[in-house]
Design a protein around this nucleic acid. Structure first.
Length: 590
RNA sequence: CGGGGUGUAGCGCAGCCUGGUAGCGCAUCGGUUUUGGGAACCGAGGGUCGGAGGUUCGAAUCCUCUCACCCCGACCA
């Protein structure tokens, strides 16, 4: 492709509204253009990237995986525009509307429709229609399509759009054992996809969130600008989204052999920070008593949650435990009515409030703890769980943090010294997510097949997503420098940037033209900068666009010499003959 | 939705406080000279100053409302 002819226009400066590198560079290089918040056009160069990613995804989806006893998935295409009815069947319409995530409106007949944010409902209908016998299973179907989500806060360019390209696959199996195989096959496929895209990624345990289901893992591209925090253990390989991460209870909370309760006047000391200063004791000696409002489809309920003072509640774990749509801290007024005191003085001892109480595991072992007295400006010392209040249901409700110790998953891990189990935090971008849905949707929508015994059975489903446009952004987040993008070879819009410094000179132009033809004949994708602009512009554009390989035809063209360089290491330039150039490219691409 | 910020030419910005001819750099168009890291000179085009209302002889500037966009928190590929 000749640069003088292609629709690709770089900007001198990145747009002011771009924040993260991928957004800045993609916009500056003229790869994407914003139409509105979270809505972008992809110019031809960007479309080449997206097409390459899609091609890799298709190959890996279609590939049979006999090691997991699974044939390849099959591509189909489902409607973007979806009627409300199927969303009522699955029970998701109200929730998605309430969350505001759904783009929905009414048609001319006043029927409600939405733009598909995901396709569990549609695919379940398809399966229900065509699959009637266990003999037809397993099945795996996928599509690559634009998805629509009215994100609460679209941001970071392609990283979180309101409209984005996604590959979504759905598997149907006879039973859980079958689902496990389909899931394992997709897990393998995902690893192959991201590896082939040239990304540095990892797989982590994840919360299954709004999609629901029993198990899920996320595929994460590590990058400092990632929106999510992950907890990992280098020694054991444990890795999880912080939302679902588990860790051992950190040591602490032991105040010695139990002593008698004692009321203490603590005027104005409302926070753990205030209290540690007042009592001159570390935060782990206090019990935090929190009131949450849990939101359900049909009601709201309050719960009281206890946790050691130095730890924090993981609200995702709380939501999952309560099977609620969401939780938020209760309003001050509610807390006052439960405790009879100002906010900041709640405690489990003598709490009269008629609410469900839960406790994090960290509370159980505490001795001589300090809690609120349920009277304003007063706390109680020497509180011992079990003695001074009934221990409620005890769960893991903690937010796992860097420095905590991983929970051993087997004897070998249990035998490791504590130091080896230490967890650390890292940031990353979620580019893929796979879920075991089980019969969540098939049961709700009464989608069944006839089993060997003649009885109808709900499908065991899995669903599997890859953010195709996000993969492109993540590749740039992970691969760029101060001059521009650095595309991994497999997803680069072109493999070689052939830069003719001064095409007005016959010697240069002739050498470049010839190389352009030869490389193309050899099957190499070449962007040929044949423009008559200054060398500086060409080099800066070339660095910005970031094709993996570059051949510069310049002042030594008359002697048959050109320059070869790799974008990843621009400083390393070698002067070689025209004949060698093609061989260099072939070698770099191998 | 809560908090903070920004809207002036395709992109980046100044002008606003203290009202009085709408500007600068880059980009674009024509011309001459240039050509290995964003060239020089000459000339030209391009604007409902986000929108509406108000104050005023006069509003980019002051006031009110509104829309859009960005950043920080709750959602997700």
């Amino acid at each position: 492709m000749k640069q003088s002819e292609i629709f690709l226009y770089t900007l001198h400066d990145p747009p002011a509204d771009a924040e993260v590198p991928s957004h800045k560079l993609l916009a500056q290089a003229g790869f994407i253009q914003k139409l509105a918040a979270g809505i972008y056009s992809y110019t031809p160069a960007m479309w080449r990237v997206l097409s390459k990613i899609s091609a890799i995804v298709r190959e890996e989806m279609d590939r049979a995986r006999p090691e997991h006893e699974r044939a390849g998935a099959q591509e189909l295409m489902m409607p973007i525009l979806q009627p409300r009815g199927i969303w009522d069947e699955s029970g998701r319409w109200n929730r998605y509307v309430q969350d505001g995530i759904l783009f929905h409106f009414t048609d001319r007949k006043d029927s409600e429709v939405c733009l598909g944010p995901t396709h569990e409902e549609v695919i379940t209908k398809i399966a229900d229609c065509y699959i009637s016998s266990y003999k037809q299973l397993p099945v795996n179907l996928y599509q690559i399509q634009t998805k629509f989500r009215d994100e609460i806060r679209p941001r970071f360019g392609l990283m979180r759009g309101r409209e984005f390209i996604m590959k979504d696959a759905y598997s149907f199996d006879i039973d859980e054992a079958g689902l496990d195989k389909s899931y394992a096959a997709m897990d393998a496929a995902y690893r192959d996809v991201f590896r082939r895209c040239g990304l540095d990624f990892m797989s982590v345990e994840a919360d299954s969130g709004a999609i629901g289901g029993s198990g899920s893992s996320e595929f994460i591209v590590t990058a400092d600008t990632g929106e999510d925090l992950f907890i990992i253990c280098d020694e054991t390989g444990y890795a999880s989204n912080q939302e679902s991460a588990v860790a051992q209870v950190p040591p602490g909370g032991d105040g010695g052999s139990p002593e008698a309760l004692e009321n203490v006047s603590t005027p104005g000391a409302k926070t753990i920070e205030d209290l540690t200063a007042f009592f001159k004791l570390p935060a782990d000696r206090f019990i935090k008593t929190l009131f949450y409002k849990a939101v359900y489809p049909d009601r709201e309920e309050h719960v009281c949650v206890l946790i050691r003072g130095d730890l924090e509640i993981n609200e995702v774990k709380l939501v999952n435990e309560l099977a609620a749509l969401g939780v938020e801290l209760a309003e001050d007024k509610a807390v006052q009515s439960f405790t009879g005191a100002e906010v900041g003085f709640a405690g489990p001892v003598g709490l009269k409030a008629d609410v469900v109480m839960l406790a994090d595991e960290s509370v159980a072992a505490m001795k001589n703890a300090i809690t609120g007295a349920n009277r304003t400006d007063e706390h109680i010392k020497n509180v011992n769980p079990g003695r001074d209040f009934d221990m409620p249901k005890t769960l893991d409700l903690r937010l796992a943090r860097a420095g905590d110790l991983a929970v051993p998953r087997n004897d070998a891990e249990a035998a490791l010294p504590a130091e080896k189990l230490k967890l650390r935090e890292t940031r990353g971008i979620e580019v893929g997510h796979i879920f075991k849905l089980g019969d969540k949707y098939s049961s709700a929508m009464q989608a069944t097949y006839t089993a060997e015994n003649g009885k109808p059975v709900a499908f065991q489903m899995g669903c599997y997503g890859i953010g195709v446009s996000r993969v492109a952004a993540a590749a740039i987040e992970q691969n760029h420098d101060e001059k521009g993008m650095i595309w991994p070879l497999p997803i680069a819009p072109w493999q070689v940037h052939l830069v003719c410094v001064n095409p007005k000179r016959d010697d240069q132009r002739e050498v470049a033209d010839k190389l352009y033809q030869e490389l193309q004949d050899a099957g190499v994708e070449v962007l040929y900068d044949d423009r008559t602009v200054s060398a500086g512009i060409k080099f800066n554009d070339s660095d910005l666009i970031g094709l993996p390989l570059r051949i510069t035809v310049g002042r030594d063209a008359a002697e048959g010499q050109v320059e070869f360089s790799v974008r990843k290491n621009t400083a390393d330039k070698s002067k070689i003959s025209v004949a060698e150039a093609a061989a260099k490219v072939a070698a770099a691409m191998a």
